[in-house]
């Protein structure tokens, strides 16, 4: 079961990386890439750090490199959670 939703990603983005004027996260979070939303790799890292801390997991490096969208990030955290539950 997915634990992390796009809403969680959105909240962590706002808290950790901030939002620029003119960026509509409400609409864009589900459809756009981080790059299209104006976020660089550090913003993704910072957001991933926050979500990881909150959930007691860490996204591995290879997966992190492939993250392009907020959904990818949610999926990565959920996968880490699932792996942690198995282990």
């Amino acid at each position: 079961m997915p634990v992390i939703t796009l809403d969680d990603v959105k909240r962590a983005l706002v808290e950790g990386a901030g939002v620029d004027a003119g960026v509509d996260l409400e609409r864009g979070i589900a459809t756009l890439t981080f790059e299209e939303l104006g976020y660089d790799s550090l913003a993704v890292l910072e957001t991933g750090l926050r979500l990881g801390r909150e959930n007691g997991v860490e996204i591995d490096d290879e997966q992190l490199a492939d993250i392009e969208t907020p959904q990818d990030l949610a999926d990565a955290v959920n996968q880490a959670l699932a792996e942690a539950a198995v282990a």
Partner: peptide, 11 residues
């Protein structure tokens, strides 16, 4: 903030 935007303010 209005001039710099939220992303720069955070970083």
């Amino acid at each position: 903030a209005p001039a710099l935007g939220g992303r720069l303010m955070s970083s």
